[in-house]
Each structure stands twice: as C-alpha cells, then as structure tokens.
Write a protein that binds this DNA or RNA. Structure first.
Lengths: 396, 396
DNA sequence: CAACTTTCTCCACTCACAGGACAAAGGCGG
DNA sequence: CCGCCTTTGTCCTGTGAGTGGAGAAAGTTG
C-alpha cells in the first residue's frame, strides 16, 4: 500500500508543519502571526505544502468580523505508529499527524525473548490496530527500547537487560516490515519527549524526566533537545552508587540505585518483609498471588500498611538523594517522575522532594517543581510518535 | 580612547571571523574551502569585512603553484582582556583577536573583600598590562567569577563564597570602567571554554571539565555549547553528598564533596595529620610555615610521604565516585580535571580513574579519556577571551 | 615563451522575500 | 438593502542574496 512520503522542502515548511502539528494556528493569517515571514512568502510556502499530501485545506472557518479564513490542517489521513517496548510489556499506539492517540494497545511481553519474537508481537498488534479501521498504513513509526541506542543508526548497543538485542538493526528491520521510515530511541528519552510535547513539561527547555519502572533511567532535555551522550547511554542513572557497600547489583557492583529501588527491587523487598512477618497486608497478598509486585505495595500503602509505606519512603529517599545530586549538577527547571511506580503516588513524591529540597542548594531548588508525569503509560508512545514526526517534518 | 566597535552584519561574516580566529585559513581561497558559499559571495563578504576595522589584508602569501593569495587576517590591533577571579587570587591577561596570550598577570586576592576592592585591583592590573605597551585599549573583556551567574545580565547570584557580590552588576560596572563590551560567566565554565578552544577538549562536543581548587565545580559542554542551567548554577557539584553523615559543610549539610576534598579540605586534613604525628614531612612543613596548603601536600607526596599520598588518594576516590555518577548520567566523550590541585598530578588522576572505570558502565567508560587540563592557570583567561570574542563575532 | 595552476574579479541570471495594492468576503449600523 | 469597516487572501513589483561561468591576474614549470 502506497503511503505519503513527501517531506518539507525547506526550513519554513518544516516550521509550518510543526506549528500545525502542535495545535494552535489553522489559517494562513494565524500562521503568519507565529512565523517571521511576510504574508506573500507564507502563502507561497503554504501553497507548496498543499500541493504535497502533507497538508490539506478543508472548508472555511467562521468569520471573526471579516472574510472567513480557510481551514489549513495536516492531512487527517496521516498515521504514525508509536511503539514503547518495556522490560515486561509493550505499548503500541496509532496517532494522527497532531499526535493524538487514535488507538492504543498494551500487552505483557518479555524483552529477553529477543528482537525477533518481540517484533512479531509488535507487528501483530499493529496489524490489529489497522484491522480495527484506524489506519490503512503508516507514514512513520517511532520505537523506544529499554536500553542505550546508537541514535543515528537506530541500533541498540550493549543493553544490560536485553540479551540478544545488541547490534540488532531495529530501525532497518522495522522499516522493512512496516514499509515506512522508523526512528529508534531509548524509552526514557521518548517519555521525556512525550511529556515535553503534551504533558507537564510543555514550554520547559531544561528538565529531567526520571522513569522508575523495572529499572531506573533519566531523560535529559537541555535547551529543548534530548541529550543522548556520545554513546547513547546518557541518563543511565540506575547504576549510580546510592548506598556504599550496599546490595549487590546485576551489573557486578554493589549499592547501585537500581538494586535498592526500582519496580523489581521494591517487589523483592516486599516479599522479604512479608516473609519476615512485618506486614500482614503484604503477607496475605503474597499468599494469594504467590508473588508481589509494585502494584501490591502501592495497594497496601493505600490501605494504610506501615511497612509498605516505609518501603516506599525509603526507596524515595534513595532516589531523592541521587536526584538531588543531578539537580545540583544539571540545574533543571523541572523534574518529572514517571514510569510504573507512579502508582506509589504522593508518598514517593514527598520522599523525593524532601531529599532534593534538603540536599541541593537553594539557588537550584528555589523554583524547581518536582511533579509526577501527566501522561502515564501513554507518554512513551506519544514521545515515539513525536520522534518520527520531528524527523519527517524536517527538511530531507 | 576610541576602539573598534564593528560587529559582523550577518551569519556569514560571523562564521568567517570565527574561522579566522580559530586558526587555519588566511586567504579567500582557503576560507572558501571551509565555508559553504560561492567564491563570488565569499568575496563580497570578505570585502565588507575589510571595510570594517575587524579584518585587514596585509601582503601576499607565497605562491603554491599559481597566483599568490592575499593574506587575510583579523586586525592585529584588536585586544581582548581576560579576567579570572578565583577565591584567593586573580588572573588578568591580554590577548589578540586569535586569543593568543600577549601578557598575563597573577596576583593573590581575597574575593570576600567584595566587588569594589576586587575591581580596583583588576583595573590596576589591566592598566599595568596597558602600560607595558601590550594594548592601547580593549575591544572587549570576559570575566569569570567563582559562583553562579545570571548569564544574560552578567550578574552573580547567591554566590556562597562571595559575600557582597550577590546582584552586583559586574557586567555593567566593568563595561563602564573599561569602555568596552563585557561578558561575565562562572569561572568553571570559562575553564571549560578555554580547554575547548585551545586545550585538550578541541573537537570534543560533549565533555565535563572538573575544576578542583578552593572549591569544586564542573563545566558542562553539551553539543559544543556550555550548559548553564536555568538559574546559572549548573555544574555546582561541590555540595553533592559524597559521604553519608560525613563532615559538616559550610552550606549547612553534611558529607558534601567539597567538605571532603578540595584545596581547602586537603589543607585542613594535612594540618590534622601533621598535628597527629602521622607524617614528619608534613609536620616539618607546618612548623616552617605555620600553615599548610595543597602545594605542601603535593610536594610531600612527590617526596614519597605516605600520609600525603593517602590524603590525595582518598580525596581522589571521593571525587572519582561523584564523577562516576556524572559520567553515567551525562555520558561525556571526555573528562578534564583542572584547577589548583592539578599539582597533585597522576596520583590524583589514578584514583579518579579507578573509581570511574570501576563504577560506571562499560558503555559509558569504554572510550572515555580522563585527563588533566592542558592549559593550567591560563585556561580561565583564554576562556574569558573566547567568551567575549564569541559575543563580538556574532551578528549584533 | 607557451602551457598550466591558482587566485581573484566581474557580470548576468535566478530565486527568496518584503511590502504595498487590491480583491474577496464577511459584519454592522443606518 | 446599502455603504463602510474589518479580516483574509492574492497579485505584482522591486530589492537584495546568492550562484556559476568567463576571464583577468599572477604565478610556476618545461
């Protein structure tokens, strides 16, 4: 199936496409207010965009006291695929060109089964979304993986929790299968881009986005752009030492943040606490399910269980200590907390805030909001769609 | 005295000025090789620059097998002033437009005496350099201060070690006195810019520059640009917690990196060790001078004193632990160690490397050089000159 | 001295863009 | 319903940026 493949011919057209994507203006006059071009030049570029299949004009807007304006909008038929591969589950969503989610699927999955099995699942989920009439094909796809990525090539490198993925040509393989351009990034970076595009980080140029799920990572946005580092491993804060001579970590060191607090560590600690008889609430849940997860801890805490609350607080303190260091170093304008453990809610947030506000210098924390992500499980797929749309809406 | 005040009229001219400044090309043909412009357009812009007082043509170069080229160069009469205010001393240097140091003065000083007294000293040093015939006046000045700066306005904010400087209009005051444009920045950022321009960090886009002097700070360069953070306090790593429940720090917390290792902390620990009879070498130096500094520790270590070596190693381990965390977070392509303690040399460097290479993940450290700064005490003033020249060589 | 290089200059042509005139299309008061 | 105002969009011309080629200037080499 033939999809649209046009790209903006110059920076003006790219700018216009992004203005249209990010809401707001939808007529030539309104576009003119937001871009530094004369009306005549603007008209030329809009006309050229209308000749492509990226932009369409449909009908007239209501009058605002004068001649009615033409509605200019991105082609409503454009479809982006956003894929967010986690350690234990995968999200796939279809968006339109404005990055609004038209359909969203989540399925459990084990990333350790390797790229071939995972892609089979992703493609079947994408096919299901297509079959439900949401898309006839995709104009682009963004995909996030839970590990470092060599960004220009779209290839995971040395991913600790993804055996079998090292060097796998994700971008090329998926591009072949889907028949459209694909961009690959770290899942945490995509979460940051999602919150930047449509969440709490709108209009913030420098912020950190800490994702606490099975592991811990941190998206870094500096001057509006994601900082990926020289080998794509920037933001990999899970193995910063949080406790000297602390718990052994899978990476071989001791006391890593991830070994002391993360979805996995929290579940482990909860089981220990239950087995030691510290909490009836946790013990009964353990007996019922045979295992415990972060969700159980959150539910127990919500039910007032002191042990669960302690676990969350202690974990929050650990993360907070590390974040305090990062805040001193990076001096962000906002810290977003997201990922699977956001269910732990304000108990966790309070512990983190306490540590950061106590340990970092007033100049860095004075005006620093620390908030939960707004988009929850959709942040990743929105960020993925944003990634590919940024790519396609840039001059070729 | 009237000085040159022309500025490039467009981005092409700015680009040409920076090419000329950073060495390499010195004829129209060579400039054409490095800039994406047609020969004719290039000639136009060069001619316009020659009409200003920024660029001059003097004589012909030797032939390379054809017509001889005209020598095009920045006006050799341009003079920049670079000022690096430390906690206990101040550096002032004069450079030409290529940022080569023509004259350099260093004097002891106490930043706590406040901006008025310090500026008096800086101005007299500048006058001394002028009097020695190095400059008739200055076309611009860059100045570094040991604390956070609100960069656009050139005003220090909430500087912990600089009482009396908070909100002092450094940029405006100095601009008045010198009669030329002035830019102000944190001293560590200038050191980073110095090493980037003329030191070990040439051609590295993402690196960290850790300055260990009286205090500890870190210059952050991301994508070739200095990252200053939203309030100008980025890189303020001296108050990251390095030791849980460690030594009390002037900031009110405990265990701050700066409280455990810095020029000041090292001197304090050396005195303690000497008084406890742990080292004859240090004790005799203490008896001789009545006090000890980092220089004494360095000399003792060089003489093979085990206690001095231990102090350096332990300090290096502390710094190394913190840097390891920053490396995981930021994933730089290079780490530069500079500042007053570089005299501690390879003992310090070895301790830092050990910690970083052990604690950070292989992907981040695999190809990561950790080196001493190349420029020593001139890094700051070169960075300062670079700062103002970047400013003046940009379109107004 | 002829042939070839390299450097620089000049000129004609194209295209980007601004800005004003003007047309189109509506609202509103009389 | 009519004139007058506002808003939106189109057309046209002038200006300046920029390219590319022709060729002049100034060398080297055989």
């Amino acid at each position: 199936m033939r999809r649209m493949t046009a790209r903006p011919a110059n920076a003006h057209q790219a700018r216009l496409l992004k203005l249209l994507r990010d809401g707001g203006p939808n007529s030539r006059a309104q576009l003119g207010d937001q871009i530094d071009l004369s009306r005549s030049k603007l008209a030329v570029e809009v006309d050229r965009l209308l000749e492509t299949d990226l932009v369409v004009a449909d009908g007239l807007a209501a009058s605002r006291g004068g001649r009615r304006s033409h509605n200019i909008r991105l082609n409503p038929g454009l479809r982006f695929l956003g894929v967010d591969i986690g350690a234990t589950s995968v999200d796939v969503a279809v968006t339109n060109a404005e990055l609004e989610i038209l359909g969203h699927l989540n399925q459990p999955m084990d990333v350790r089964e390797g790229p071939v099995a995972v892609f089979e699942q992703v493609l079947s989920m994408a096919a299901k979304l297509k079959a439900s009439g949401l898309a006839e094909g995709f104009d682009g796809a963004g995909i996030g993986v839970p590990g470092p990525v060599r960004f220009p090539e779209g290839v995971p490198v040395a991913p600790p929790i993804m055996p079998g993925w090292d060097g796998f040509p994700v971008r090329e393989a998926l591009s072949q299968e889907l028949g459209c351009p694909v961009m690959v990034d770290n899942d945490v970076n995509l979460m940051a881009m999602g919150e930047q595009h449509a969440g709490v980080a709108r209009s913030v140029g420098d912020f950190l986005c800490v994702k606490i799920g099975t592991g811990i990572g941190c998206g870094i946005v500096a001057g509006g752009d994601v900082h990926r580092g020289v080998t794509g491993s920037a933001g990999d804060i899970g193995h910063i030492q949080a406790v000297p001579d602390g718990r052994p970590c899978a990476c071989g060191n001791r006391g890593c943040l991830e070994a002391h607090f993360s979805g996995a560590a929290l579940a482990r600690d909860a089981v220990e606490a239950a087995e030691q008889g510290l909490s009836e609430e946790l013990a009964s849940r353990l007996a019922a399910n045979g295992t415990l997860t972060a969700v159980d801890v959150a539910a127990s805490a919500a039910a007032g269980d002191a042990t669960a609350l302690d676990l969350i607080r202690e974990g929050g303190n650990r993360v907070g200590q590390v974040i305090a260091g990062l805040v001193s170093f990076f001096n962000p304008g906002l810290v977003v907390i997201g990922g699977g453990v956001t269910g732990l809610g304000h108990t966790l947030l309070a512990a983190i805030r306490t540590q950061v506000y106590r340990q970092s210098l007033p100049l860095a924390t004075g005006n620093l909001p620390i908030v939960l992500g707004e988009l929850g499980p959709t942040a990743g797929v929105i960020g993925a769609a944003r990634l590919i749309s940024d790519h396609l809406f840039s001059p070729a």
